[in-house]
Structures are given as C-alpha cells and as structure tokens.
C-alpha cells in the first residue's frame, strides 16, 4: 500500500512538473500579438524622432540627418541604382526559354506588388520572400536560380520595387499559429545578441539610429526594408535584403546564415510587418 501511494505520488509530481514546464510555452504562443507589437514598434520611433515625418523613416539615414538628406536628394537626380533598374526591367520582360516570363508567376503580372512581400504561405507553412519567389519562378520555368545577394536578383527586385513606389507596405499575418510563430521567431532574431561584438540588430537600429558608427549614420529599423534593394557605395554595387542581413551579421563577427534560411525569412517577415503603412521607396541608395 505504501509503495503504491509512493508510486502514485511520484507520478502526480512528475505530471505536475511536466505541466509546469509546458505551460509557459503555451501561454507564450497565445501571447503573440503582431498588431500590438507593430503599433508599439512604430510609436517608439515616432516618439523618439518627433520631427521626422512618418513616411520619411523609409529613407533610412537620410531621415536622421538634414545634411545627408540634401546630398542624397541631389544624387537622386542621377541615381546610382539606375543601371540595375534598367537591367531589371529588361530581364523582367525577357521570356524564359519556354516562352513564359516572370509576369506569369506573380499576381498582377508582377507590377506594383512589392508591398505584399514577404507573405506567409499557409500551404508550405513558411514565409516566402520576393527573392525566393523570383528564384522559384525561374526554377519552375527550367531556369537556374540566381545568387540571392546581388547582381541579377538585385536588378529584378529593384525593378519590382520601383513599380510599387509609394504603395504602403501591406504584410498580412493569417490566422495561423505557424504564421504567428514565424513573426515571433523573426522578432526574437531581431533582438538577439550575436557575434563576438555581442550586438543584436536592435543594438544599432533601435538603440542608436541617427548615431554614427565610424563614418556612417545608423538607419532606424522602422521601414528599413522599404528601400530595398539598395545601391551601397561601400559595396560599389547593388545588394538585396539577403545581402544586408549577411553583412550585418558579419559586422558583429557572427558567421552569417545561408541566404533565405528560415531565420532570415522570418526576420524579413517581422521587419516588414512592423513597417506596415509606410511607403515602398526602393530601390534605394546608401553610403
């Protein structure tokens, strides 16, 4: 009898411990509230920089410095990304070997849709970025995928961003636990410190926008992807969102992840969602 009671007691204890261990994660999943997060995120920047027009945050460092802004506006008369824009337009309309084009892969023929990317694909259960969708389009039509970080991919996304300029970012999070989890994962990635320098994305782009890091002025995280892809003088060329994430990781002395890894896709989902309502301004130019 005593042995039986002891066994029962230990089983109940084990069950209670198991419940206690699982309970927090259940509560955490229920607590994911992207709309509230996005509101808080935007309010943080609006309050931190009350003189910056809301739609101006998408211009990154230029929204933080009047001097830089004037220089940039002059540069925009002959924008350094123009060659990529022209190449992207031509590539977009050139048929694949099977006669189809990119337009066949996207809603509205691929025109003016940048603001809807990335989206959460409920069939796949994952985030699909514009870069990923472009390569999937190529592969579905018998073409080899492009590098995710520059050249052709940057040209294509530059053209697609250009056809969407001014349209407010409009990222949806469907009523799907996996979509909320992807948003939460992206948020966690954004705030997690990594690399030998122990920096998170937020260390620079939340805590220090407008401050200088060496010769550069740090951009605010709000709307940071709306201007992508960008021509960077530092790169002497164009770069995609993938390239930006990889460079940021390297700069903190963290080994970057693979382009279009789940983590980067979720990070893009988070950053794009919290910028909802702000206009697409890509392609952009940065020092």
């Amino acid at each position: 009898m005593k042995a039986g009671s002891a066994l029962l007691l230990s089983s109940v204890s084990a069950a209670l411990v198991a419940l206690a261990l699982t309970a927090p994660s259940v509560v955490a999943a229920d607590k994911v509230d992207p709309a509230t997060d996005a509101k808080a995120f935007q309010n943080f920047f609006f309050q931190k920089f009350p003189d910056v027009k809301h739609e101006d945050f998408v211009n990154g460092p230029y929204s933080m410095s009047e001097d830089m802004k004037r220089q940039w506006q002059e540069k925009e008369e002959f924008p350094p990304y123009e060659f990529a824009l022209d190449a992207g337009k031509e590539m977009f309309s050139t048929p694949f070997k099977n006669g189809k084009t990119y337009a066949d892969c996207f809603p509205n023929g691929g025109n003016g849709i940048r603001q809807n990317y990335p989206y959460f694909d409920t069939k796949e259960g994952k985030v699909v970025t514009l870069e990923l969708a472009l390569n999937r389009c190529r592969e579905a039509n018998g073409e080899a995928p492009y590098s995710y970080v520059k050249d052709e991919m940057a040209s294509l996304t530059a053209y697609m961003a250009f056809t969407s300029r001014g349209k407010p970012m409009d990222i949806k999070i469907p009523d799907d636990a996996r979509a909320r989890e992807a948003f939460e994962n992206g948020k966690r990635y954004f705030y997690t410190r990594r690399g030998q320098l122990n920096f998170s994305c937020a260390s620079c782009h939340v805590q220090s926008p407008g401050e200088r890091i060496r010769a550069e002025v740090l951009a605010p995280a709000l709307g940071i992807l709306n201007a992508m892809p960008i021509y960077r003088s530092e790169w002497s060329g164009m770069g995609t969102i993938s390239r930006r994430f990889i460079t940021c990781n390297s700069q903190t002395r963290a080994v970057p992840l693979e382009p279009q890894s789940d983590e980067y896709r979720d990070l893009e989902y988070f950053l794009s969602y919290v910028a909802n309502g702000l206009p697409i301004s890509g392609p952009g130019a940065r020092p």
């Binding site: 808080a40 995120f41 966690r188 705030y191 997690t192 410190r193 990594r194 998170s200 937020a202 939340v206």
Partner: peptide
C-alpha cells in the same frame, strides 16, 4: 540570449 533578448524588446 534565449531569454535575455526580451529585455531589449520594444
């Protein structure tokens, strides 16, 4: 960082 990241969250 599994928990510490939350301290930085907006």
């Amino acid at each position: 960082e599994k928990e510490a990241w939350k301290a930085m969250e907006i």
